[in-house]
């Protein structure tokens, strides 16, 4: 065999990181939450998640193949992530065909319309969720199915919204461990945090977005809580961080690469924006939960954040 000389511009080696590996890590990080959710809510969780993932992947493949007529992009696993996140944003009792519609909106409108991975301005899974929330409000807020010892058909967030004094009667350990009403992925704060630590360790995400979102929410809760009883308590801030989609949104949805800012400074502003809008909607808006809308609104602000918040140029003050 003869020697063949290769040539290319530098660098000649690569770190070995791959888009599909990053997406795989996100899916892996979501597994503890899926496991606890399945344990608490039953096998239907797996069924809904499987439907969501399968339809997301299928729609992406179909759109690539027949509408865009280009090489399929399902191998990057981003459709799988969208599918899992979409499922995590749904109540367990939702009919399967609504999930399919959600997947179609998420992939078809939220992602592929804009050119696919990397070019979508809004988080696809959130696009799907928000569409379903508006189109099927009853199915999307029916929390009765699945939970064996469910007290009522409402989530803690809506309970507290109309009776803030109840906050001191909550058992935070239940919220932490998984005994809480809500969407499939919101069940256990602990599982979500474990996944988040895994993502931080694998350098898939940085701390900036989750910490700024949760920090803003806590600060907001602290100030508002003080106006209720006149004393500063940990209860309201802690409640808001643990309840609803706060952790799911802060760790997994808001950190979506293409819809979040590119610089650390930008990420912090983006996170503060999401935290503040979430709390405003939760406390004074019509919906009990505001996370998805807050992320959606800040997604829209991402291009302008990227434009004005550039990284610190070496050698400048």
């Amino acid at each position: 065999m003869a020697t063949r000389l290769f040539a290319a511009p530098s660098p000649h080696i690569h770190g070995g990181e791959k888009s599909s590996r990053i997406m795989g890590d996100v899916v892996l990080a979501l597994m503890p939450a899926l496991a606890i959710s399945t344990y608490v809510l039953g096998w239907r969780v797996l069924f809904i998640t499987a439907v969501a993932v399968a339809s997301c992947v299928l729609f992406e493949w179909l759109i690539c193949r027949f509408l865009l007529k280009r090489r399929s992009t399902i191998h990057d696993l981003s459709a799988v992530v969208t599918g899992v996140l979409l499922a995590f944003n749904l109540p367990v009792g939702i009919p399967w065909w609504i999930v399919v519609i959600g997947a179609l909106v998420a992939i078809g409108i939220g992602k592929m319309t804009f050119g696919g991975l990397g070019t979508n301005p809004f988080n696809p899974a959130l696009t799907g969720r928000i569409f379903l929330l508006i189109a099927y409000p009853v199915a999307m807020t029916d929390w009765t199915t699945g939970v064996p010892d469910s007290l009522s058909g409402s989530t803690l967030l809506s309970d507290i919204k109309y009776a803030p004094e109840l906050v001191s009667s909550l058992n935070f350990m239940d919220m932490f461990g998984g005994d809480m009403n809500g969407s499939m992925g919101e069940i256990s704060a602990l599982a979500l945090i474990i996944g988040g630590i895994y993502l931080l360790w694998r350098r898939v995400i940085t701390w900036h977005i989750p910490v700024s979102i949760l920090g803003t929410m806590a600060l907001f809760g602290l100030c508002v809580g003080a106006t209720y009883g006149g004393t500063i308590t940990y209860e309201l801030p802690l409640f808001h961080i643990l309840a609803g989609g706060a952790l799911l949104g802060a760790i997994y949805m808001a950190t979506d690469y293409s819809t979040s800012p590119m610089t650390h400074k930008g990420m912090i502003i983006y996170g503060v924006g999401i935290g503040a809008i979430t709390m405003i909607i939760r406390l004074w808006g019509a919906y009990p939960e505001g996370m998805s809308f807050a992320i959606f609104i800040m997604n829209a602000a991402t291009p302008i954040i990227n434009k004005y918040l550039r990284p610190k140029r070496f050698g400048t003050k």
């Binding site: 990181e17 888009s19 990053i22 992009t73 990057d76 981003s78 696919g116 991975l117 990397g118 070019t119 940085t206 690469y257 293409s258 979040s260 800012p261 590119m262 610089t263 990284p311 610190k312 140029r313 070496f314 400048t316």
Partner: peptide, 15 residues
């Protein structure tokens, strides 16, 4: 395609 992961921004030693 670029997935806007910002890893290059983080790695750039010149900001």
């Amino acid at each position: 395609v670029c997935i806007k992961c910002a890893k290059c921004v983080e790695a750039c030693p010149m900001g």
